[in-house]
Amino acid sequence: MLQVILDHYNYWIAIFLMMVGFYTVVARGNLVKKLVGLNIFQTSVFLLYISMGKVTGGTAPILDDRFQVYSNPIPHVLILTAIVVGVATTALGLGLVVRIRESYGTIEEDELDLADGET
């Protein structure tokens, strides 16, 4: 039982974080809060990838004669670039939020719907 928990704890937390982020995106009306939720979602995916690449007893994939076992470097590469792309897209989202605020005077989703006559 303990072994099952230890084997899957990373995945479970990744799923919990993903769902918290997902819920923040769909259920919260504030656009900045939505972007923070999106970041949490994103980090949960990072965590899932990196957890899958971990090898027990391994070390960071920087080659040295003293070590034999290394963790899988491929997820690291994928996630490394994803983080920087993530902040670039977050900046784009925040730029949109600033423009929406300037045009509508609010960043709450229901007030924006009201302003657009979509209720």
């Binding site: 960071a60 920087i62 490394l80 670039t81 983080i83 920087v84």
Partner: peptide
């Protein structure tokens, strides 16, 4: 090239 780091981190 030798330790953790690279263009992405250095740029930030």
């Amino acid at each position: 090239d030798f330790g953790p780091g690279g263009g992405f981190q250095a740029g930030v």
